[in-house]
Design a protein around this nucleic acid. Structure first.
Lengths: 342, 342
DNA sequence: TTGAAAGCGCTAACAC
DNA sequence: GTGTTAGCGCTTTCAA
């Protein structure tokens, strides 16, 4: 199949190729009649506009780079799902990259985006990354950049995140209102921002409801399902009394749940359990695991919409960057539903 | 930041711009000394090759289009994860599109790919799609096309799928070997290829082990968690005796499991349950749900590798298309583990 | 309302 | 080993 260009259409119709170009771009100065015949022969010849040429010439591209740690993590694939939806509805396409949490990959991805002359970049930073030169280069080139979930604060770039403090607060408040009094919180050993925020939410809820903060109820670890199980074993070994557990994320909460059931502890009657992230399994396990929903798809949509606004505004980096902080929501399931009304 | 081109580097070094181009592309006829100085000033000036220009001129692009129904389905995001990994390691980038199971979106996605002059396309067909003109256009343009999981047989295009017949067989055989004799199979009302294959596997296993095929044990429905629950209620209502259930996918199996537990039926002692897909929740529910693993990441990797071979071969559409059929694997968990040894 | 001409930044054939 | 030249297929001024 020979490659068809606007010149072929022009030859066919005996007009100049620039008339054809204008007709295809729906230029106002072209008569409806010409437009019609141009479109018809374009169709007939199976013409397809070459975006490479048009982007090169015009200096405008309609692809935007999206880089995330891994699509194999449901949080990220779900956010990308939301981003792609909105981005596509607005006529852009996405160039996708996974950093696999590696700084080198992330840098390489950004370079590819820059070389491909993307219109802008949406990113969630790799865990490993501690140098941000590749991100500041984007800024220096005046290319729109937006972070979601994992943000580099020092760059002062627009971002979309969720309010982890509020999430921690909601989870804890819910347990308190269900009548639980000695609430364990499992958090991360490392001082990762989001987990510190969830812990702050936990502490603030206790304070607000005049419950004492008991340091022996705050457990620090390498979060995982196994760590959740281990926490429960330790609490029993140490004979710490408790009647509820708020775990920093659902897998850990799941471990907690499994170990409690193994010990024949009744959930939620004797001990309530709540997680964080609202993973798909939370609704399926028995008893259903209460959790905090992170609004993944809305996060992607909000990110894409804010980003489109950035693309359209001229004074991109002049005013203060906009930060959208989404509200997490409490999902109550059987694992904490001790009272009829919450 | 002014845009830097090879001309700027050339001016800086008093050489011709084509020397610069060759140096940057590591052309053998350029002296090491020139290469070095060119690379240095490129770095100094913050030069970035414009891929749009180079692809336009050379006629070769290094982006490949990937279109899937939805990234919000873990199967697809996991396969895309595998594809992206291999594709990137080989210097290509992926342009991503979701069809959301819609024919119109799928068509639009393919058109965008064609306009963007992608080097090739990897696709998993939308449910809604019944016309394949957009796919045959790809072939006509001699652009490499590969299907994974959802294939258009009539197009004779390379593909990567899993052996659903074998999956159905493995699941059923496992139940038989565990001593279950009256095995229910829940399948789809619509005659979707993969589900028909799983059913065939079920029937073949029964035959091989000389178990009778009882039509009243084969249930056709609109699969979902709720349908799984309903199946169990119906079986009890109709007083059909059975001692195991093989459901066409995990969510349905989960419904089965939940309803059995609600009826205080002991799993796996009285009834064994196995699903299909090995969703992440299968390992987390109690009892753990046995399932058939679909090799999502390997599928993505195999698809990407076969695809790269296609890109490199000249006689793309001459010989018979290669079809890779991956073996599913049996994952045994508590829901079917009635005997010590399987 | 349309045409002519220049050029986006690069690759690659052809010179020397 | 390096320079010259001609485009890739478009967009976009300027002129008519």
């Amino acid at each position: 199949m020979k490659k068809v260009t606007i010149h072929d259409i022009a030859k066919e119709l005996n007009v100049s190729f620039s008339t054809v170009a204008r007709a295809l771009n729906d230029h106002p100065a072209i008569s409806e009649a010409t437009k019609k015949s141009v479109r018809e022969t374009a169709q007939k010849l199976n013409y397809r506009q070459n975006k490479l040429a048009s982007s090169l010439r015009s200096g405008h591209s309609n692809t935007i780079g999206v880089i995330v740690p891994s699509l194999d993590v449901s949080f990220f694939s779900s956010v990308v799902h939301g981003i792609e939806k909105i981005i596509n509805e607005n006529g852009y396409s996405i160039l996708l990259y996974q950093s696999n949490e590696s700084y080198e990959s992330e840098k390489k991805g950004i370079e590819t985006f820059l070389n491909s002359r993307v219109a802008g970049i949406i990113a969630s930073v790799a865990k490993e990354t501690t140098k941000y030169e590749h991100f500041s280069e984007i800024r220096r080139r005046r290319i729109p950049l937006l972070f979601f979930d994992r943000v580099v604060e020092s760059l002062h770039v627009p971002s979309v995140t969720i309010d982890d403090h509020k999430g921690g607060f909601l989870a804890t408040e819910h347990l308190i209102r269900q009548g639980y009094k000695r609430i364990v919180h499992i958090t991360a050993k490392q001082t990762i921002g989001i987990f510190k925020e969830r812990l702050r939410g936990y502490l603030d809820a206790l304070k607000l409801y005049n419950l004492p903060v008991d340091e022996s109820l705050i457990l620090y670890g390498d979060f995982s399902l196994d760590f959740g199980r281990q926490c429960i074993r330790d609490l029993y070994l140490r004979e710490v009394s408790f009647d509820a557990v708020f775990a920093l994320e659902d897998f850990t909460a799941m471990g907690v749940l499994q170990q409690l059931l193994a010990y024949k502890v009744r959930v939620p009657e004797e001990v309530g359990v709540i997680g964080f992230a609202n993973e798909s399994f939370a609704a399926l396990v028995t008893p259903g695991l209460s959790s905090i929903d992170q609004q993944t798809v809305p996060m992607g949509e909000a990110a894409a919409e804010l980003f489109l606004k950035m693309l359209r505004s001229e004074d991109l980096y002049n005013n203060l960057p906009k930060r959208i902080v989404l509200d997490p929501s409490l999902i109550v399931r059987a694992s904490t539903e001790r009272l009829a009304s919450s």
